[in-house]
Design a protein around this nucleic acid. Sequence first.
RNA 1: GGGCUGGUAGCUCAGCUGGUUAGAGCGCACGACUGAUAAUCGUGAGGUCGGAGGUUCGAGUCCUCCUCGGCCCA
Length: 976
Amino acid sequence: MTDSADNKIDYSKTLNLPQTDFPMRAGLPKKEPEIIERWNEMNLYKSLREDAKGREKFVLHDGPPYANGNLHIGHALNKTLKDVITRSFQMRGYDSNYVPGWDCHGLPIEWKIEEQYRGKGKNKDEVPINEFRQECRDFAAHWVGVQSEEFLRLGITGDFENPYLTMNFDSEAIIAGELMKFAKSGQLYRGSKPIMWSVVEQTALAEAEIEYEMYESDTVWVKFPIAKGPDHLKGASIVIWTTTPWTMPANRCVCYSKKVSYGLYEVTVAENEFGPQPGDRSIFADSLVGECAEKAKVEMKRVGDVSVDDLKGMVLDHPLKGMGVDGYQFKVPMLHGDHVTEDAGTGFVHTAPGHGRDDFENWVAKRAEIEALGIDSSIPFCVADDGTYTDDAPGFPDVKVIDEKGKKGKANQAVITALIGQNNLFARGRVKHEYPHSWRSKKPIIFRNTPQWFVYMDKDGVCEKGTLRNTALAAIEETRFVPALGKNRLRGMIEGRPDWVLSRQRAWGVPISVFRNEETGQVIPGPEFDKSDELSQRIVEAFKKEGADAWYAEGAKKRFLDGIVDNQEQWTKVNDILDVWFDSGSTHAFCLEQREDLKWPADLYLEGSDQHRGWFHSSLLESSGTRGRAPYDAVLTHGFVMAEDGTKMSKSKGNVVTPQEVISQSGADILRLWVASSDYSEDLRLGKTILQTNIDSYRKLRNTLRWMLGTLSHDEGEEVALADMPELERLMLHRIWELDKLVNSNYDSFDFKRITRSLLDFMVLELSAFYFDVRKDALYCDGPSSVRRKAALQVVGHLFDRLVTWMAPILPFTMEETWLSRYPDAKSVHFEQFRSCPDEWRDDALATKWKKVRQVRRVVTGALEIERREKRIGSSLEAAPVVYINNDELNTAINGLDMEEICITSDIEISVGTAPDGAFTLDDVAGVAVVPQLAKGEKCARSWRVTTDVGADPEFPEVSARDAKVLQELKLLGKL
RNA sequence: GGGCUGGUAGCUCAGCUGGUUAGAGCGCACGACUGAUAAUCGUGAGGUCGGAGGUUCGAGUCCUCCUCGGCCCA
């Protein structure tokens, strides 16, 4: 130590002050990419796999995000949760492999390509389908690349070099194979359903392709003569109201509601000579009859009640029954419908099951009831692709509902004329209302019955537990749900759902690779076809080699059917594609089952709560239908990310937070800390304030680790046995032991916020504010031979190793940086396992005792605070208070302890007995009173403690006896 | 409109089967230290537990209604 000019020693140079290059400020946005680069260089993912070879597998199966557009905050939340789980299981001793996946087929990508076409003035229909498909494929591939990079930037670890894609040839082959399993087991059937159809584009449209615009519709009030009903209603009619007169030929029933009050009304005065005339009797909802009378320009009086019992079982004639064509002679039943309201109309709802969603659903739900009445429940196909009536709507040949330009056709007028001819038109009018239009052509669309492919939910004998529904419900019971409420939600949906529609009339997807016999309706592969396996295999093999494009290639039909069927002419190759939910529902088949490094079923599926209707749902159905159980043992759901006020993020409100901006401004670890400290079982909130809270937490955490690093930079000396350690060290080991249990069990139950909270609180309350604060004197000032110092260093080392590994799954970047700072030769913290904590560390009695010690300490600190307020002291080392203890328990607790060390004062006098008046007390610590006093003696120039033995060693006159001894020791070692 | 679900200090979270004056960390204010220093330590102020009824000796915790929000349907 160099003496300065005035011959004074710089004692700070003789201390073991913290020394570290580990920066206080993280600079994560810059630092994190460097760490990623390091991981890439060592190929961290592959090394981890090799490292974990042979260990028990833990498989979290990735739900595939859709491959279009950049990541949003929801993706970040989802993938971070997955990553925390993957990493924590890896560090807890499993081989925890994670294979990311992407959903690549489907509508949104088709739109984008079509949009590009329109920009170039091209038309999708003029492009060969496989050319179009290739462009979709390229588009998806591009976004897989972009998202992959973004996920990696978030610190996600996984097999990003070999992800699974639904559009990989192998995937497409197996998806088709899965579909054919449904076909072969007799679970697949061809039915029909009304869908939104654009006549102009001659294409089906999805909900998202629809926009609502004002539109003027023709409206009609139509009489349905009662054919069978109670006597007092004989000769009367039920009147319905509709804004789509063209759907009258497709009418199959009329719905009423139990909640509506109906009456029988008779016309008393009629303004016109046409339409309803005096004496005509009809039934209306009492609340709506006035408006109806007005529209028909008549006056009516109520002549009787109509009860629900009167309506139940009633049968009507079709209003076009008498128009002289074959086809309207069927019976029209009255059915109850929950969708019937008194908002508008007549209180009765005209039901054309082929042209409306409610209509269809109510009709299908009541199928048994309808059949029991001896009525055919099949749904007619009344309108063709081009908007023209078909033979299923007899009497209107060549009449169009909508023409090729999107203009109204003659259908409404023709129907109205026919109704007038039958004297069944009660009134007519026009109404302007919101009506669905194609967002592309801006032309009105129609609901139109079309053939679709379904899977039976309730067909018996085709599935493990009889029906698919029962099989799936049983599978739900076998699954663990986190949080538990998810089970009810999924169960409710499976219980109530209709048959599963698989088909889409689209181009970018896996085809429904079956053939249908147009005459017999037989489908192959199928249950009664002996070459099903051969056919199925042939298709799968082709798809594996060429992708699903093989289905659309020239000569595909011949290629697949040669030698399979005798007369290929009879068979039609189905051109529909599979709904993308079937693709993703099959990931377990083409990813989990196929990859050697994974397993089936997965330990865990993890997605947002919307996936109860999505991926959890379709995976469950797919797997139940083909394998009789769920493809997962457990399902974890998380909520959605909201803005700070709890409402949805929206561009217009300007409260959208993107992962990209958080990462570039604060770093991925900040985002990850936010995830790990939030309650993901509900919706989570994110905004400026919340981000700042996490930044602050991060700083505290980082600084605490930094201090440990600095402290640990000094020689730890030889190991101190547990029994030789001071109580304070043993207390900390006990706490580590407790935290070890807490951390492990909460990683196991996926409760990360508990881990984060506990560790942060521990670092703040017990380390920074207590243990470290107390031990600074020993760590900085004690000499190399001090057992106290060696023990403390050892404990800090234990703390460091555990805290850093425990937090590595949550903060992979920072913990890597921290770990490498202490262990520069280590490969990566991510190869570490959570260190075990010996049971010898546990000491409950000691913990109880020290709770009491800290109570006494609180009183001392409280008393010193007053002194500080009054400017009598600054540092607590200036004080040497007297502690009066009048409490046996507390007295026993502190007996034999260096209370001045624990309270960080220069001296403490313990006095058993009553305190003088005016001594400082705390309400909640009975029997402890403190009288503050200034420490006697001089301030030691080295330790800053005020002692009476400063100058005891004439060689070091400025320091206390303890410090002089240390200096002598250092001198002996040649370190001075 | 229906199903499921949530609303505890400025922020994030604890509060088990109903039981003393509702807790913690952060933030904030004030103070101390200047050997964790754009750090560290201490003290303090913040809540009619979304609102209103009800059950109970007693409710943040149970029931009903209302309100605001979320997901999924319609």
